[in-house]
Design a protein around this nucleic acid. Structure first.
Length: 149
DNA sequence: GCCACCGGTGGC
DNA sequence: GCCACCGGTGGC
Protein backbone atom coordinates (compact mmCIF):
# COMPACT_ATOMS: atom_id res chain seq x y z
CA UNK A 1 0.00 0.00 0.00
CA UNK A 2 1.19 3.47 -0.78
CA UNK A 3 2.54 5.73 1.89
CA UNK A 4 0.06 8.11 3.34
CA UNK A 5 -0.13 11.31 5.19
CA UNK A 6 0.04 10.72 8.86
CA UNK A 7 -0.37 12.12 12.28
CA UNK A 8 0.94 11.07 15.62
CA UNK A 9 -0.60 11.36 19.01
CA UNK A 10 0.42 10.92 22.56
CA UNK A 11 -1.05 10.70 26.00
CA UNK A 12 -0.86 13.83 28.11
CA UNK A 13 -0.36 13.72 31.86
CA UNK A 14 -4.03 14.21 32.72
CA UNK A 15 -5.12 11.28 30.58
CA UNK A 16 -6.60 13.31 27.75
CA UNK A 17 -5.30 12.16 24.39
CA UNK A 18 -3.94 15.03 22.38
CA UNK A 19 -2.75 15.36 18.85
CA UNK A 20 0.61 17.02 19.18
CA UNK A 21 2.29 16.24 15.88
CA UNK A 22 1.12 16.35 12.30
CA UNK A 23 3.52 14.85 9.83
CA UNK A 24 3.64 13.62 6.26
CA UNK A 25 5.96 11.29 4.48
CA UNK A 26 7.95 12.41 1.43
CA UNK A 27 7.02 10.45 -1.69
CA UNK A 28 10.63 10.41 -2.85
CA UNK A 29 12.91 9.88 0.13
CA UNK A 30 10.24 8.65 2.60
CA UNK A 31 11.43 10.91 5.40
CA UNK A 32 8.82 12.34 7.73
CA UNK A 33 8.27 16.08 7.69
CA UNK A 34 6.43 17.93 10.42
CA UNK A 35 3.51 20.06 9.35
CA UNK A 36 2.96 22.98 11.71
CA UNK A 37 -0.82 23.29 11.62
CA UNK A 38 -3.83 21.06 11.22
CA UNK A 39 -5.04 23.29 8.40
CA UNK A 40 -1.89 22.72 6.37
CA UNK A 41 -2.02 19.02 7.15
CA UNK A 42 -5.62 18.84 5.90
CA UNK A 43 -4.68 20.71 2.74
CA UNK A 44 -1.89 18.24 1.96
CA UNK A 45 -4.03 15.25 2.87
CA UNK A 46 -6.93 16.35 0.66
CA UNK A 47 -4.70 16.36 -2.44
CA UNK A 48 -2.31 13.62 -1.43
CA UNK A 49 -3.09 11.11 -4.16
CA UNK A 50 -3.02 13.55 -7.07
CA UNK A 51 -0.26 15.67 -5.63
CA UNK A 52 2.02 13.64 -3.37
CA UNK A 53 4.02 15.44 -0.77
CA UNK A 54 7.75 15.87 -1.27
CA UNK A 55 10.31 17.46 1.01
CA UNK A 56 10.90 20.40 -1.32
CA UNK A 57 7.35 21.60 -0.66
CA UNK A 58 8.52 22.71 2.73
CA UNK A 59 10.28 26.05 2.46
CA UNK A 60 14.06 25.68 2.56
CA UNK A 61 13.92 21.90 2.87
CA UNK A 62 15.15 19.16 0.55
CA UNK A 63 15.44 15.39 0.68
CA UNK A 64 19.09 15.84 1.71
CA UNK A 65 18.04 17.18 5.09
CA UNK A 66 17.60 14.73 7.96
CA UNK A 67 14.06 13.67 8.81
CA UNK A 68 12.10 15.91 11.16
CA UNK A 69 10.92 12.92 13.15
CA UNK A 70 11.30 9.15 13.11
CA UNK A 71 8.67 6.62 13.97
CA UNK A 72 9.20 5.17 17.42
CA UNK A 73 7.12 3.97 20.34
CA UNK A 74 7.28 7.15 22.42
CA UNK A 75 4.00 8.14 20.84
CA UNK A 76 1.02 6.51 19.18
CA UNK A 77 1.05 6.91 15.43
CA UNK A 78 -2.11 6.87 13.36
CA UNK A 79 -2.31 6.93 9.59
CA UNK A 80 -4.85 8.96 7.66
CA UNK A 81 -6.62 8.03 4.49
CA UNK A 82 -5.64 10.35 1.63
CA UNK A 83 -8.25 12.46 -0.10
CA UNK A 84 -10.33 13.40 2.92
CA UNK A 85 -11.91 16.78 2.07
CA UNK A 86 -10.74 19.83 3.95
CA UNK A 87 -13.05 20.50 6.85
CA UNK A 88 -15.64 23.06 5.76
CA UNK A 89 -15.34 26.37 7.55
CA UNK A 90 -17.78 26.63 10.39
CA UNK A 91 -17.30 22.97 11.24
CA UNK A 92 -14.84 21.30 13.54
CA UNK A 93 -13.63 17.83 12.60
CA UNK A 94 -12.95 15.97 15.79
CA UNK A 95 -11.06 12.69 16.19
CA UNK A 96 -11.51 10.86 19.45
CA UNK A 97 -9.29 7.98 20.46
CA UNK A 98 -11.02 5.03 22.11
CA UNK A 99 -9.71 4.26 25.56
CA UNK A 100 -8.37 0.91 24.42
CA UNK A 101 -6.62 2.55 21.44
CA UNK A 102 -8.52 0.24 19.10
CA UNK A 103 -9.80 2.99 16.80
CA UNK A 104 -10.65 6.64 16.50
CA UNK A 105 -14.14 8.02 16.13
CA UNK A 106 -14.69 10.99 13.85
CA UNK A 107 -17.23 13.72 14.49
CA UNK A 108 -18.05 17.04 12.92
CA UNK A 109 -19.32 19.77 15.21
CA UNK A 110 -21.52 22.28 13.41
CA UNK A 111 -21.64 25.97 14.26
CA UNK A 112 -25.11 25.55 15.75
CA UNK A 113 -23.83 22.97 18.21
CA UNK A 114 -25.09 19.91 16.37
CA UNK A 115 -22.81 16.91 16.36
CA UNK A 116 -22.63 14.77 13.23
CA UNK A 117 -21.39 11.21 13.55
CA UNK A 118 -22.04 9.72 10.12
CA UNK A 119 -22.96 10.79 6.61
CA UNK A 120 -26.58 9.97 7.30
CA UNK A 121 -26.42 12.62 10.01
CA UNK A 122 -25.21 15.13 7.40
CA UNK A 123 -28.26 14.51 5.23
CA UNK A 124 -30.60 14.82 8.18
CA UNK A 125 -28.79 17.94 9.31
CA UNK A 126 -29.04 19.63 5.88
CA UNK A 127 -32.69 18.67 5.74
CA UNK A 128 -33.38 20.21 9.10
CA UNK A 129 -31.22 23.31 8.62
CA UNK A 130 -31.44 24.05 4.89
CA UNK A 131 -29.51 27.29 5.15
CA UNK A 132 -26.33 25.22 5.49
CA UNK A 133 -26.89 23.89 1.97
CA UNK A 134 -25.45 27.18 0.74
CA UNK A 135 -22.15 26.33 2.38
CA UNK A 136 -21.70 22.58 2.40
CA UNK A 137 -22.76 19.33 0.80
CA UNK A 138 -22.35 15.69 1.68
CA UNK A 139 -19.11 15.52 -0.31
CA UNK A 140 -17.45 17.93 2.12
CA UNK A 141 -17.51 15.34 4.87
CA UNK A 142 -15.64 12.13 5.50
CA UNK A 143 -16.11 10.18 8.69
CA UNK A 144 -13.28 7.79 8.08
CA UNK A 145 -11.00 7.96 11.05
CA UNK A 146 -7.29 7.27 10.89
CA UNK A 147 -5.96 3.78 11.52
CA UNK A 148 -3.94 3.02 14.60
CA UNK A 149 -0.55 1.72 13.62
C1' DG B 1 -12.69 -9.26 7.87
C1' DC B 2 -13.48 -4.51 7.89
C1' DC B 3 -15.84 -0.46 8.79
C1' DA B 4 -19.73 2.81 8.55
C1' DC B 5 -23.38 3.47 11.15
C1' DC B 6 -26.31 3.60 15.07
C1' DG B 7 -28.44 2.18 19.56
C1' DG B 8 -27.63 1.93 24.35
C1' DT B 9 -26.11 3.63 28.65
C1' DG B 10 -23.56 5.43 32.54
C1' DG B 11 -22.08 9.45 34.56
C1' DC B 12 -22.85 13.96 35.07
C1' DG C 1 -32.14 14.80 30.32
C1' DC C 2 -28.09 15.06 27.81
C1' DC C 3 -24.19 13.43 25.62
C1' DA C 4 -19.65 11.24 25.47
C1' DC C 5 -18.39 6.97 24.78
C1' DC C 6 -18.59 2.28 23.48
C1' DG C 7 -20.26 -2.21 21.48
C1' DG C 8 -22.74 -4.60 18.00
C1' DT C 9 -23.97 -5.50 13.40
C1' DG C 10 -25.19 -5.45 8.60
C1' DG C 11 -23.46 -4.69 4.22
C1' DC C 12 -19.79 -4.81 1.52
Amino acid sequence: MEKKSQQSKRQSTNGITLVDIWSVQCGECFKWRLIPTEEEFEEIRSKFTKDPFVCSKKPGVSCDDPADIERDDTRTWVIHKPGIPKTPSGFKRRLVMRKDFSKMDCYYDAANGKRLRASTDVLKFLDKFPKFKNDVSLADFSFTGPKIM
